[in-house]
């Protein structure tokens, strides 16, 4: 990136998608999606495997750029800034954090994992980093658990701890939006509960979009729910509404467990 090239900075926390489609080569994975995701709420994406939930999620931080032959049309706005326009993609990803399905801590110490993001963005003073690390771990409710093993390898943690560490790592760069792609699918119920609690707390400052296969999880934590099928957004409404009185027959079938 050239210094003088002026980029739009992301300040808003809401996402709006207008008539978006996406192709992996010849295969169309998203079909004319439009959706408004409100700020500081939890929005859940549900739907059978392969319907495009992860794909849409990865549009929000442009992780799809890494996929060869991936083509996107339509508009993705955060506030009123087009994220496929004049935006520095690294800056975008700093503001739109992501937690993956499989925990992916780096092969470093707990401390270095969390400090990695801040260091990437130029914070190197030990004291500042100490503060950020502690704060992020507290936010992820792991400070007490981990404060004595900050210098131990992150790969030695349990699966649930690793995933919460990844959340803390994402929080360390103070994202405005947090994307979570089935963050609990590989975890035990106790760890899952902890992460759900965490989401509830984070919601006060952060917009969360979470992909989940677990209907109970969607009802427990989300404010809005979108139901996807074969690359289309079939229904999108407040979570209560979707689960109590779905408009689409297919939605009803899915949430009552009759297909998918």
């Amino acid at each position: 990136m050239k210094e003088n090239q002026k980029n739009d900075t992301i300040i808003a926390q809401s996402i709006s998608v207008r008539d978006a489609s996406l192709w992996y080569g010849d295969f169309q994975a998203l079909k004319n999606i439009s959706i408004e995701i409100p700020e500081k709420k939890i929005t859940a994406f549900i739907g059978p495997s392969g319907c495009g939930k992860s794909t849409l999620l990865k549009c929000f931080n442009r992780m799809n750029d890494l996929v060869e032959g991936c083509k996107v049309t339509g508009n993705f706005l955060i506030g009123d800034i087009d994220i496929y326009g004049k935006v520095d993609v690294n800056e975008l990803r700093k503001n739109v954090g992501m937690v993956f399905q499989k925990p992916n801590p780096f092969p470093m110490s707990v401390y270095d994992n969390i400090a990695y993001g801040p260091r990437t963005f130029g914070i190197h003073k030990r004291k500042e980093l100490d503060i950020i690390v502690e704060k992020s771990l507290r936010q992820a409710a792991m400070w007490e658990e981990l404060k004595d093993r900050l210098n131990k390898s992150a790969l030695g943690l349990s699966g649930g701890q690793q995933q919460r560490l990844c959340i803390a790592r994402a929080l360390a760069v103070k994202p405005k939006i947090l994307l979570m792609d089935e963050p609990t699918s590989a975890l035990d119920p106790i760890s899952t509960g902890k992460i759900e609690e965490l989401c509830e707390e984070l919601k006060e400052s952060t917009t969360i979009v979470i992909v989940t296969h677990n209907m109970q999880q969607a009802t427990r934590i989300s404010d809005y729910t979108g139901f996807f099928l074969m690359g289309e957004l079939l229904e999108y409404a407040e979570t209560d509404e979707i689960f109590t009185s779905p408009k689409d027959e297919k939605t009803e079938k899915y949430i009552t467990g009759r297909f998918g």
Binding site: P105, P107, G117
Partner: peptide, 23 residues
């Protein structure tokens, strides 16, 4: 996943390569 994790935080290709992948 290491690569993706680092890029998702906003690190660019080169710093991901030298700070995560090579180590």
């Amino acid at each position: 996943q290491y690569y993706e994790g680092s890029v998702a935080i906003g690190a660019n290709h080169t710093s991901t390569v030298f700070k995560i992948m090579v180590p």
